[in-house]
Amino acid sequence: MSILVDKNTRVLVQGITGREGGFQTERCIEYGTKVVAGVTPGRGGESAFGVPVFNTIAGAIEAQGPIDCSLIFVPAPFAADAILEAADCRIKVIICITEGIPTLDMMTVKRTLDGSDLTLIGPNCPGVITPGECRVGIMPGSVFSQGNVGVVSRSGTLVYEAVDQLTRLGIGQSTCVGVGGDPIIGTTTRQVLEMFNNDPGTKAIVMIGEIGGTAEQEAAEYIKAHVKKPVIAFIAGSTAPAGRRMGHAGAIIAGNTGTAAAKKAALTDAGAVISDSPAEIGATAARVLKERLL
């Protein structure tokens, strides 16, 4: 079992003819992902890696049948428009990799998706992978392994780091989700925790947070109220100086709520087990799984 995507998911790639979009589409296909169509406006009728390219998503659906998931590599100035096109075509899971989308563009996107049954993952994220079944994103497929630990992270490369540690210790993953590091994202850590909590294929959850914002506190509230499965958490940026922006727009400590200490305290209070070191996320998970006989 898994969340969001699996071996039957029919994927469309927006921006399939771009350099990164193309490279990553090939990796997705190699991994076994069912990429059934691509969209690049003006390039309809071509084909990329054996996948037919269309001018519009509506055209792709008309020719190829239903699409379950869209993967977006469109450049930042045009990415919000790409998300809205996917939403307008009622694609249930929309995964946007693009980094650098203006915040106000995302505000409009978020408002449009409010109250709908569509799920946007990202932007500025590595995507979603259900190991052994479906990779919709940019992650290095080789470090992932099938299993029953769900992984959710604001940072993309920290997903790989945590998963690499898990896999080396023989701990496989149900699904891994990078929610993205921007101030406005489609799906929060808390919402992904809820999906994992309701997924019978997920027995434990590894959650990677970072300084800035209150997403980890919101996740902690949810864990405290609803999650019986073990949660192992790491918060990046314990040692970052206050008031400086560390890459991710969200990763700036302002006031007391954004600090790693405040986030760790909230998560500990909710019953999560904290790994203080980024190098010991896997070992901490292994210890917790052993203790809980999972």
Binding site: S153, S155, G156, T157, E210, G247
Partner: peptide
Amino acid sequence: VNGAGLAMATMDAIKLAGGEP
């Protein structure tokens, strides 16, 4: 480092190992 989160985690790991980024 590639990625902001991993870059922060790398700083954390250096500090935990007794160094300063």
